[in-house]
Amino acid sequence: MTITQLHYVLAVAEHKNFTLAAEKCFVTQPTLSMQIQKLEEELDVQIFDRGKKPIQLTDVGLKIVTQAKNIVNESGRIKDIVDQQKGFIGGDFRVGIIPTVMPTLLPMFMANFINRYPKVNLIIEERPTEELIKMIKNGQLDAAIAATPLDEETIKEIVLYYEPFVAYVPENNAAYQKKEFDVEDLEANLNNILLLQDGHCFRNNVLNICRAASLPSGNHFQIESGSFETMVRLVDEGLGMTLLPYLHTLDMNEKSKAKLRQFKEPKPSREVSLIYSKKELKLHIIEALRSTISGVVRGAIAFQNVAISSPLNRAK
């Protein structure tokens, strides 16, 4: 039994296709198939049911894959230990970022990080929080950037910054006349709030600020969008108000900024953190990423008196 064989098994289990798995492993399909067959012969079991389309794991195959993930992940940590001992900061580092953070944060720190740590190859994926947690637990990501706290026992969280929410209000809304918002103003406008679609933790953040499990259906339309830009355009048309993360408002033009309303202190905010498995050993790269992001964001967000809103769905 070899680590390479286990890599091949995990690739087939993930892609449910021998040809695609071989492409991802950068080997020929016959080579991959032969190695998996050798492993099955050695163990005297069938790991995959090849008679089904797509290919499925057998009952024993499911258990083998679970153990194979642990073995492959732990074997990879040997190089991490050596790198840390030598003080080497480099190699592949897989990072996931939630969609409501990636467009604003990534351009702020990426060039800086590349210049400071040219030997690190950042592999970045945009995923919702639930997928990031799963991928970290499965060893598919080294770290992620997400709204916290997440209450996950196996995951460590390092706070990067606190980002206030800002109301974006159309001129035809009575709340437009206010210079500052408080939570009661938001709750009084529940019928007019436009939110991102289900699955976005930012939606949960806002609902938790309003102390509401869902929004009332007072509008004459329903919309599901994952884009802040869509929400902003709808507000510009006078179809409701919305909440935006503070960093998203920095590049707005002056006409749009006139529709922004800050909240009174303590400002409702979200906590954005670097998260990773408690078993993670690439701590030297994690620290490099943390220090770079914190240094860049510190100049953009100077708020201290904040009230953190949970990204978790309270209705569950």
Rank of each mutant, 00 (worst) to 15 (best):
M1Y: 07
T2P: 06
I3N: 06
Q5V: 01
N17E: 05
T19P: 00
L20C: 02
L20A: 12
A21R: 07
A21K: 10
A22E: 08
E23T: 10
E23Y: 03
L32T: 03
L32K: 01
Q37A: 11
Q37P: 00
E40G: 06
L43S: 01
D44G: 04
V45M: 12
Q46I: 02
Q46T: 12
I47M: 01
D49N: 14
K53W: 07
T58A: 11
T58N: 07
V60I: 11
L62A: 03
L62S: 13
S75R: 06
G90M: 08
I97V: 15
I98A: 13
V101K: 10
L105K: 07
L105Y: 04
F113E: 02
I114T: 15
N115D: 14
N115P: 01
R116V: 00
N121H: 13
I124K: 06
P128F: 05
E131I: 15
L132C: 09
K134M: 11
G139P: 06
Q140W: 08
L141Y: 14
A146W: 03
P149F: 11
P149V: 13
D151G: 00
E157N: 13
V159H: 08
V159K: 14
Y161S: 12
Y161D: 14
Y168I: 04
P170C: 07
A175D: 11
E184P: 00
E187K: 02
N189C: 00
N191I: 00
N192W: 10
N192D: 15
L195E: 04
L196M: 05
L196R: 09
D198S: 11
F202A: 09
N204Q: 12
L207N: 12
I209R: 02
S217F: 02
G218S: 02
G218L: 08
I223Q: 14
I223C: 09
S225M: 08
S227C: 01
E229L: 10
T230A: 14
T230H: 13
R233V: 02
V235P: 08
L239I: 00
P245I: 10
Y246A: 02
Y246T: 02
H248T: 12
L250K: 15
E254P: 02
E254N: 09
K257W: 05
A258G: 02
R270K: 13
S273Q: 12
S273A: 11
Y276D: 04
E280N: 15
E280V: 07
L283T: 15
I286T: 10
L289K: 05
R290Y: 07
S291G: 07
G295P: 08
G299W: 10
G299L: 12
G299E: 14
A300E: 13
F303S: 12
S309A: 15
S310W: 07
L312A: 09
A315W: 08
K316T: 05
